[in-house]
Design a binder for these strands. Structure first.
Lengths: 346, 346
DNA sequence: TGCGATGTTTGGAACGTTCTAATGCATAAG
DNA sequence: CTTATGCATTAGAACGTTCCAAACATCGCA
C-alpha cells in the first residue's frame, strides 16, 4: 500500500470522502473547513502515512520556507556555533535552514549554491570561502534571491553584511598587548584577499601607531586561518631576529595553533610569549592557558543575520543595511603578566 | 526581464527557437541532440540566467539527488568532522547533502526529519538525538526511504548502523589504565538509554573483570556527553571516598570537561589523575596534556556511511548490513606515568 | 521511385499541489 | 414564498519539468 508510489492529497481525499481542495485547505490550517470535516481528513492523513510534497506545492506558491546557510568551515567550532545560532531563529520562524559546508573551496561553494538555488531556497546566508569571486553572488542577488554575508565580506560586493567590529576588536586586543609592555608584536594568519584581514590588520596597525610603535611589516605573517596555519605562522615569526614577544592572531584557531607551535619550541604560552585570539570560541576559556580573545557574540551575530534574512524574505527585497556587532576583549591568562622594561629591551 | 517570474525551460526554448522537450534533453546532457542545437540552447540558458527547478523535475522523476544528514550536535567537532566526511563522498557522487542540526532535541529532530522528507530526500543519515523513540524511524523506513544510523543506534530498531567497535574500544582504553597501575577507575558521561553507553560501559566492565577488579557501581557516573557533563561528572567522582585515580570518559568532550574540572580542584590531569577519552578528535593531540583516546577513524566511518547510503539508493532498498569500524588506542600523555604499588594503596 | 533505417525534434500528458471562481446549501430577511 | 447572505465545499486550471510516442528529415539502397 504505502510501498507503491507515495500517497497523495488525492488518495487521502478519497479516503476521507472529500475533494482534494478540502484536503489542501486542511493541510494549510484554513479556518474555512468545518471542524468535523477537518478532523476526519486529519485522521485519514495519519492512517496513510502521508508526506507532504513541498516541491509540488512550491511549484504553485513560489515561496519556499527553506533558506540555505553556506558555511566555509564547519569544523571550525566558531562557524558551527554561528550556524546553530541562525538555525535556532529560523526553526522558530517555521522556516527550515539547510546547512552546507564549502570546506573553504570556491568550486564546491559554486556547486552548493547552485543546488540550493535549484532547490528553490527563498534566501541565502553565506560565509564566503576564501578566494571567492563576487560576481556569482551579484548574479544571485540581481536574480531576486535575498542573500547576506556573515562574518566575511567581499571587496566589490553590495551584498549586505553582518559582521563584528573587526578593526576595533583588533585595536583593543593589540592595545592590551602593548599595555602589557610588549613592543614587538606579530600578527598571525589570514590573507590579504580577505576584507576581514585588512580590517583586523588595520586595527592592529592603528593600535601600534597610537602608541608610537613602528609596525614591522615582516611580523605580519599570512597563513591559513586554522590551527595548522597558526602553527606555521608562529614558526616563521620566531625565526626573526629580534623575535617578537607577543602575537595578535587572526582568530582563535590560529591562536591555538600558535600555542602548540610555541610548546614545540619549548616555550610556554602566557609565560614566555603572549597570545591573543579573535572570536572567543567556547573552547577558549577551557584551554591551557585560557585564551585572551576578542568576543564577538557569535550566537548574537547569527541571530541577527537570521532575523535580517527573515525580514528581507517577508519584504521581498534583496537589500538591507549592514550590521556591525559590538565586540569586547575577554582577558584571560594567555598574555601572562606584564613584561618588564628590562626584559623588553633585552 | 529576470525580475518578473524566473525564466523557465519554455522561455529558453522560445529564445533558442526549439521546443521545450529539446531544452529538457540538453539539460540532462542527452546525446540525442545535435551538437549545434545543443550549444545554441546552452547559450540561451546562459543569457537568461536560467535556474533549474528541481522541485518541478522531481515531481515527474521521483528520485531527488538530495540526501539529508541529521546530526545531534554540530558544535561537537567530532560530529562536524563526521558530517564533512560524508559530505565529501556525496558531493563527488553528484548528490547534494543537506546538513541539519537537532541540538540533541528529539522534538527538533522530528521537525527536521519532517522537512527533509517533505523536501523529497532520497535518503537519510542520522545520528539520533538523545531520547529519540525508534518508531518515527521505523515509519520512515517502512515508507521506503533508505535510512541509516551513524555512531548511535536505537535499541529496538532494525535500521542499519555504522559505528565504531565501542565495547572493544572501551576495553582497550580501560585495560591501558589498569596496565598503568590504576585500580579505582571511574566511567564518566553518557546515559543508560543510549545503546552506545551500554557498549562502552560493557567494555569497561569486561576489562575490569578480566583483571579481577570488582566494578564499583558508584564510579559509573552518568551525565551529558559534552564538556559540561564531563566537568560535573568528575566532580561527583572525586567526592567519593576512596576517590578514583583514573577515569575512562564517554567521549573526548567529556574528557576535556573532566580535565577542566580536575584543574579547578587543583589537580593536574596526567600527573595527579589519569584520563582517557573516546573519539580522538583533532583537538585531542593538541590539548594540554595531549589526550590518550580511542581513535575511531571518524572520516572513514563517515565515508563508509555515505557509500552505504549511495548503494541503498541505487539498489532502491531500505536494508543493509551494519558496519562496525575498527578502533585503535592512541596513547598520549593524559594518563601520565605508571602508578606505583605504594601510591595505589595510599 | 519507394522503402526502411537512422537520427533529431516535438507535442502533450502526467506529476502533486494551490488558488480562483463557482457551487450547493442553509438560514435570515423581505 | 422568494431573495439575499453567509458558510462550507469543490472543479479545474495552473505551476515547470520529464518522458513517451509520434513526427519529421535525411540518407542509402533496391
Amino acid at each position: 500500500m504505502a510501498s507503491r508510489g507515495k500517497a497523495t492529497i488525492l488518495d487521502i481525499a478519497r479516503k476521507a470522502g472529500v475533494s482534494k481542495s478540502t484536503v489542501s485547505l486542511v493541510l494549510q490550517g484554513s479556518t474555512l473547513i468545518r471542524p468535523g470535516t477537518a478532523s476526519r481528513v486529519r485522521k485519514a492523513i495519519e492512517e496513510v502515512g502521508y508526506v507532504y510534497n513541498r516541491g509540488a506545492a512550491n511549484l504553485r506558491k513560489a515561496h519556499s520556507n527553506v533558506v540555505g546557510m553556506v558555511i566555509n568551515d564547519l569544523t571550525n567550532p566558531f562557524f558551527a556555533e554561528l550556524a546553530v545560532g541562525m538555525e535556532r531563529v529560523f526553526q522558530s520562524a517555521g522556516i527550515v535552514p539547510f546547512i552546507a559546508n564549502t570546506a573553504e573551496n570556491p568550486v564546491r561553494q559554486g556547486e552548493v549554491l547552485k543546488s540550493l538555488l535549484e532547490q528553490g531556497v527563498s534566501g541565502l546566508i553565506v560565509s564566503p570561502a576564501h578566494g571567492t569571486l563576487p560576481d556569482a553572488f551579484e548574479r544571485i542577488r540581481s536574480g531576486g534571491t535575498p542573500i547576506i554575508f556573515v562574518m566575511r565580506r567581499l571587496a566589490e560586493s553590495r551584498v549586505p553584511v553582518v559582521a563584528p567590529d573587526n578593526p576595533w576588536g583588533a585595536f583593543l586586543a593589540t592595545s592590551h598587548l602593548i599595555g602589557k609592555g610588549h613592543r614587538r608584536i606579530a600578527f598571525l594568519g589570514g590573507f590579504p584577499d580577505m576584507v576581514v584581514y585588512h580590517e583586523r590588520v588595520g586595527g592592529y596597525r592603528e593600535a601600534l601607531a597610537a602608541h608610537g610603535i613602528a609596525a614591522a611589516e615582516a611580523l605580519i605573517i599570512q597563513g591559513d586561518t586554522n590551527r595548522k596555519g597558526g602553527m606555521s605562522a608562529i614558526e616563521t615569526a620566531l625565526a626573526f631576529n629580534p623575535a617578537p614577544t607577543a602575537a595578535m592572531c587572526f582568530n582563535d584557531a590560529v591562536a591555538f595553533g600558535a600555542m602548540t607551535g610555541l610548546r614545540k619550541r619549548g616555550m610556554e604560552p602566557g609565560g614566555d610569549f603572549a597570545i591573543v585570539g579573535f572570536d572567543d570560541v567556547a573552547e577558549a576559556q577551557h584551554y591551557m592557558p585560557p585564551l585572551t580573545s576578542v568576543a564577538v557574540d557569535t550566537a548574537g551575530l547569527g541571530e541577527r543575520a537570521a532575523h535580517m534574512m527573515l525580514n528581507m524574505i517577508r519584504a521581498g527585497t534583496t537589500r538591507a543595511g549592514n550590521h556591525i556587532g559590538a565586540i569586547s576583549l575577554i582577558v584571560r591568562d594567555s598574555c601572562g603578566p606584564d613584561v618588564t622594561e628590562t626584559r623588553r629591551s633585552a
